[in-house]
Design a protein around this nucleic acid. Sequence first.
DNA 1: CGCCAAGGCTGCGAAATCCGCAAGTCTCGG
DNA 2: CCGAGACTTGCGGATTTCGCAGCCTTGGCG
Lengths: 172, 172
Amino acid sequence: MHSDVVASRSAEHRDSRESRTGGGPQLDAVSLAIIEQLQEDGRRPYAAIGKAVGLSEAAVRQRVQKLLDQGVMQIVAVTDPLTVGFRRQAMVGVNVEGDVESVADALTAMSECEYVVMTAGSFDLMVEIVCEDDDHLLDVINRRIRAVPGVRSTESFVYLRLKKQTYMWGTR
Amino acid sequence: MHSDVVASRSAEHRDSRESRTGGGPQLDAVSLAIIEQLQEDGRRPYAAIGKAVGLSEAAVRQRVQKLLDQGVMQIVAVTDPLTVGFRRQAMVGVNVEGDVESVADALTAMSECEYVVMTAGSFDLMVEIVCEDDDHLLDVINRRIRAVPGVRSTESFVYLRLKKQTYMWGTR
DNA sequence: CGCCAAGGCTGCGAAATCCGCAAGTCTCGG
DNA sequence: CCGAGACTTGCGGATTTCGCAGCCTTGGCG
């Protein structure tokens, strides 16, 4: 029944929290299936999940708890920012001279920066900004981001319309 | 004994120029508070939420259900794509000739496009792509996206490292 | 002004779920 | 051969969910 499950549980708990790029702790097919269930409905009962993935309720409970503890997934409410009062969003491309990492850390510390990623290409960093209004956005971009040491230049892409936003990784 | 949060029940006369893009029902302070609770923990019991926002368990349940039905929020599991087997991600800027909307729709229909937004700036669209490997990414960008009628050019920013990814809108 | 419908809230049992725990199985490695 | 880890089954008790019957307030309307 739950046979195809057997995967590598060898290097499960590696200490490296930095391993993002290299691929994190291996997840077997069952954990993947559990995550998919919770991506459809974060409040689905453990018993129902167990039935769907071929595990007992207790086992699902344990695995979910572990996935949460390990930080592999989190169960949260997500909203459209516009409906909760954030009227301006923008993607900002950043060019850096010197240490990209330290700039990224500085941006990460800003609450308005919802998403920070280091990239290859004509930008070193891409940052998604969520603001309440134009003034707020202007302040963040021109005064805060450009004030970070090492930031050479920025280019902004103000959001006109959000067309798609999914959280269905692994559900394909 | 209603509490602190409920204070502004009758004073919700803020200038509600509802912005079009997200449109949607005005959220009062209580619903906001409920959302914040669920952003911290999507599985938090209704009774606990009620205690926190000053409402009964049943009332919280009804409001949450309505928020879900209305599509204002969804409760889901979110993960780091890298830990679930998607090793290549990229942000792609797209320039369009002709109808931007129809191109956006075409991209939205692709399962690999996790995030699609229409922007102002040197790109008409920004698209986040989630792929399993380099071949997959190459295929999506060069063969699928560029094949969409109206796409004039694209520029890719391959993710090197995800530094921050939050879902705490409204929790500031 | 009085009446009524609608929406939102509370309170309350009943059903379902969560949670911890114990005992037994199975597999993998040392 | 034995221990560790993961899973299962089973089981209560605590907690949570859920449906429903009121209650109150608001707003429309004759």
